[in-house]
Simulated assay, not measured.
Amino acid sequence: MDTEAVRSFVRAAELGQLRHAADELGVTQQAVSKRIAALERALDVRLFTRTARGVELTLDGQAFLWHARNIVADVDRAVAAIRRGSRALRIDVLGLRSAQAVVLHDYWRSHPEMELDVVTLKVDDPRLAVAAVQAGDVDASFRSVTDPATLPREVRMIHAFHSPLELVVGPRHPLAPARAVTPARLRGHRIWVPGIAPGSEWADFYEQLTAAFDLRVDATGPNFGNEVLLDILADSDDVATLVGSRDRYVWPAGHDLRRIPIVRPTLAYPLSLLLPRENPHPGLRAVVGHFATLAPLPEDTWLPSWATGPRGDDDRDTAHASRP
C-alpha cells in the first residue's frame, strides 16, 4: 500500500478539498487525485464522493479514516526513529555494565529529558564499528582504532575518557588483604582475562601491558560471561582478573570478592569515541562535554602507545562540528 496515497487521503478527508490537501503536501491537485484513485482501486472501494464544495467521505471512507490516520502516524514515527538529528542519540557501548554505559547513565540521570538509545553491536573487530558509524546505524561507538591512519575520511576518533584498572580477587588470594597494589606486585600472579579476541583493541592493550610490566595475562578458554568468571575467582586462591574501576559488577555476598586499585603507576584503559566527521548527531556535543567533568587520573598513569593525552587529538567541542 502506498503510504503517501494514504497520507493524501487523510489530509483530503480532514480538509474537505483536494486542492487544500495538495497545497499542504506540496504537490499538485492532480497528483493527490491520482493517489486517491489508486488507493481506491487497491482497496476496491469508493472513499470519497465529489461535491460542489469538495469531497465527502463515503461510509467506507469513514470506516477507513481512523485506520489510515494510524498508518500515517506509524510511518512518521518509524522515519523519526531512524533519522539522524530527530531520533534518539544512539551510542554503541561494549556492554551494558561497562564503564561507557555507566558514564552515559550518570549523564542521563542529570538530563532525563535527553532521548538516548544505548546499544551493543557485539563485534570485536573495530572496523565493523567504524562501518556502523559510517553507515549511520549508530551515531557514535565507544571503540578505539589503534592505527587512526586506517580510519575512512568520513569517520573521526576523539578521546572520551580513561578507565583505571582494578584487580579483582577472591578472599583466599594472596593479594586479597591489600588496599592497593602496584604493577610490580602483580608479577607472577595469574591474571585471567578469557576471550581476548585477536585483532581487537583490547588484544593490543593487553599485549602492551604485559610487555611493559612483565605480567602474566592468561586469555585461554572461552568467555562464559562475567557470572562464571566471578564464580571461579570466588573459589580460587591463585586466579585474579582486571576490570575497569567504573565497570559495574554484581556478585553474591558469599563470594566476598575484592576490587583492589592498582597504583604507582595507575594502569588505565583509554576509551575513544568514533563519530561521523560531518553532521554528527546534535546530542553528542553535550555528552562529549560531560567526559571533561570526570575526575582526572594521576600524572603517573600508564597508557598504551596508541592512546592520546588527557584530551585526545581533537578538542572535545568539535564533536558537533561539520568540517573536514
Rank of each mutant, 00 (worst) to 15 (best):
131 A>E: 14
131 A>Q: 15
103 V>D: 01
125 D>A: 13
116 L>V: 07
147 D>S: 12
104 L>E: 09
138 V>A: 03
132 A>Q: 02
148 P>M: 08
127 R>A: 15
129 A>W: 04
119 V>M: 06
137 D>V: 12
120 T>S: 02
149 A>S: 15
105 H>P: 00
131 A>M: 06
110 S>E: 14
115 E>D: 14
118 V>R: 01
123 V>K: 02
133 V>H: 06
114 M>L: 08
115 E>P: 00
142 F>H: 09
104 L>P: 07
144 S>M: 10
122 K>Q: 14
125 D>V: 09
125 D>W: 09
129 A>C: 08
135 A>H: 09
145 V>F: 09
106 D>Q: 15
101 A>I: 05
111 H>R: 13
127 R>F: 10
102 V>I: 08
130 V>G: 02
130 V>K: 05
116 L>S: 09
143 R>D: 03
137 D>I: 06
124 D>K: 00
121 L>K: 03
148 P>R: 10
132 A>F: 04
115 E>H: 11
120 T>Y: 01
110 S>G: 11
103 V>H: 01
133 V>Y: 05
133 V>R: 08
102 V>L: 01
141 S>Y: 01
113 E>R: 15
139 D>T: 01
133 V>L: 07
129 A>S: 14
137 D>Y: 04
144 S>I: 10
101 A>H: 14
148 P>Q: 09
130 V>Q: 04
116 L>A: 07
116 L>Q: 06
145 V>H: 13
147 D>I: 04
103 V>Y: 01
128 L>H: 09
111 H>P: 02
102 V>S: 10
122 K>V: 07
141 S>H: 03
144 S>H: 12
137 D>Q: 11
136 G>I: 03
147 D>Y: 10
101 A>L: 10
122 K>D: 12
146 T>Y: 06
139 D>Q: 03
115 E>L: 13
131 A>S: 09
108 W>Q: 15
147 D>E: 15
130 V>A: 11
134 Q>D: 15
112 P>K: 13
150 T>H: 11
148 P>V: 07
142 F>L: 03
129 A>L: 11
122 K>N: 14
146 T>C: 15
132 A>T: 04
135 A>Q: 13
122 K>T: 07
144 S>E: 12
107 Y>M: 09
111 H>M: 08
141 S>G: 04
130 V>E: 07
109 R>D: 12
125 D>P: 11
